[in-house]
Amino acid sequence: MNVRKIVVCVKAVPDPKRASEIRIDPRTKTLTRADVPLVINQLDRHAMEAALKLAGEVGAEVTAISMGPPPAAAVLKECLAMGAGRAVLLSDRSFAGADAYATAYTLAKGIEVDGMPDLVVCGMSSSDGSTEWVAPELSVFLDCPVVTGVIGLEATGNAGLKVSARLDNGYRVVKVNGGPVVLAVTRELNTPRNISFSGIIKARKKEVAIWNLERLGIAAAAVGQDGSPTIISGMRVAESTRKVQMIEGTREAKAEELVRLLAAAGVL
């Protein structure tokens, strides 16, 4: 298996450090608007690192692809600075409101239009959605195998790729005999490189291509909210059945009271 072309799927997500500013309004049952900046999904940096490392070893080209609103281009620019050769943003008003299925479909069409790669690398999940579905669903649309939970990746020359992937109580080792293949990676796999100044300078010459629905040649009904089998049917604020009793007093007194509770419950 010769890896010549690698595609990395990345997502621009609300900065996780400030994501808690987006909440369900208890009164209107809608999301509160918060001006949270978009950043690259952390796991996608691990995907970029995996792709760039492998590309360095086998001499492949790396393309970063994302579906998102126009500001997501900044995240792709970062991927170019990290070392991606090309970047494509799939952006169209009709893509809005996509669930994992419609997202995977749109990404698959973008990847196809760009030309089938030998390898697609995704982060295992995104901090704002955390479904873990995009990579496997993408593999279905690309009609190729997938390995999720990747913790190890090794190019074994013509023999293909050797992939280790997390199981609940251990791991499995899978040999990929031929591409294309989709890999969903975990943070265990690597430590992502920092963006370098010279990488930023090199990225000056690279543009983020922006492709809309027409460029992908697909129907509006197949993307965005219309193309999504699932919908959000309701939102509510959770209520707890527990009634809290506060432990008060000086620090010492609070610690003593907690020790008493622990002893009474048989923990101590």
Partner: peptide, 19 residues
């Protein structure tokens, strides 16, 4: 500029992870 913002981001990442 967008590029200067990236320099800042790169420098911040460097400082937080390496320093």
């Amino acid at each position: 500029t967008e590029e200067q913002d990236l320099f800042r981001k790169a420098a911040r990442e460097f400082a937080e992870t390496m320093v």
